[in-house]
């Protein structure tokens, strides 16, 4: 049983690790150094937020806009922590480590083991979290190094790789009709705000859409 879980964790870790190449390249395209790209992956360690930081900075946004957009994207990890806390039952240093690797993938693999009991869920969480941490950081370094060696990013199409990566992160979330409506309104609103708001602000403003959806709409 545990061998199958570790195999699942490893395959998720390697697949997600490959996104790290795209992130490393995106960071360099946004004028970050290889070191800055690697520190983001080591310390922030939550992909969508990292892409948001380099996306907003690359578009000329302020540090405040970059941090705000990234942090709004990081809010979902609080809910993953909430889901994982009663399963992991950890304190002290182990809880700090668990928090750092509480991301989409570790939570998803853990929850997928629900029918196999608590030990299986714990193993899925730790194996996936640690595996993704290793591969994500390794591939960030390789991606950043590779993009630095390429020179002019636009000539290699890296300018399109960043929004394509965002689209790749968005796609699996569009499973319900409500999600597709939220995404569509967000794209329209954000595009219309581009000429009027400083870089980064149109993205942050779109946090209003799910807010209205959740707090003004009828309770379902």
């Amino acid at each position: 049983m545990s061998r199958a879980i570790i195999r699942d964790s490893l395959s998720v870790s390697i697949t997600v690790g490959v996104y790290g190449i795209a992130f490393g390249a995106a960071a360099v395209e946004a004028d970050l150094s290889v070191l800055q790209a690697c520190v983001l992956s080591l310390l922030t360690f939550t992909g969508a937020s990292q892409f948001a930081v380099v996306g907003v900075l690359g578009a000329g946004g302020s540090a405040l806009s970059a941090v705000t957009a990234a942090s709004l994207l990081g809010v979902r990890n609080s809910f993953y922590g909430l889901r994982m806390a009663p399963i992991l039952q950890v304190r002290g240093a182990k809880r700090l480590a668990a928090a750092q690797i509480t991301i989409d993938e570790s939570t998803a693999v853990s929850v997928a083991q629900e029918d196999k009991g608590l030990d299986a869920m714990r193993l899925g969480f730790w194996a996936t979290g640690i595996g993704v941490y290793i591969f994500w950081n390794l591939f960030t370094f390789l991606g950043a190094l590779g993009a630095t060696a390429l020179g002019d990013p636009a000539a290699w199409g890296l300018d399109a790789a960043v929004p394509a990566a965002f689209l790749g992160l968005l796609w699996p979330r569009l499973i319900s009709k409500s999600a597709r409506i939220v995404a569509l309104i967000s794209i329209l609103m954000c595009t219309l705000l581009i000429p009027f708001a400083p870089a980064g602000v149109p993205v942050i403003a779109c946090a209003l859409i799910p807010f209205i959806f959740a707090f003004v709409g009828d309770r379902k």
């Binding site: 969508a48 892409f51 948001a52 996306g55 578009a59 957009a69 709004l72 994207l73 809010v75 979902r76 609080s78 809910f79 929004p163 965002f166 689209l167 992160l169 968005l170 979330r173 569009l174 409500s178 999600a179 939220v182 995404a183 569509l184 309104i185 967000s186 794209i187 609103m189 954000c190 595009t191 581009i194 870089a199 149109p202 993205v203 403003a205 779109c206 946090a207 859409i209 799910p210 807010f211 959806f213 959740a214 707090f215």
Partner: peptide, 16 residues
């Protein structure tokens, strides 16, 4: 709110 927040932000980032 937490469910749809990443959807809205990622869509906005694609647009920008």
């Amino acid at each position: 709110f937490a469910l749809y927040l990443p959807t809205a932000l990622l869509a906005a980032l694609v647009a920008v």
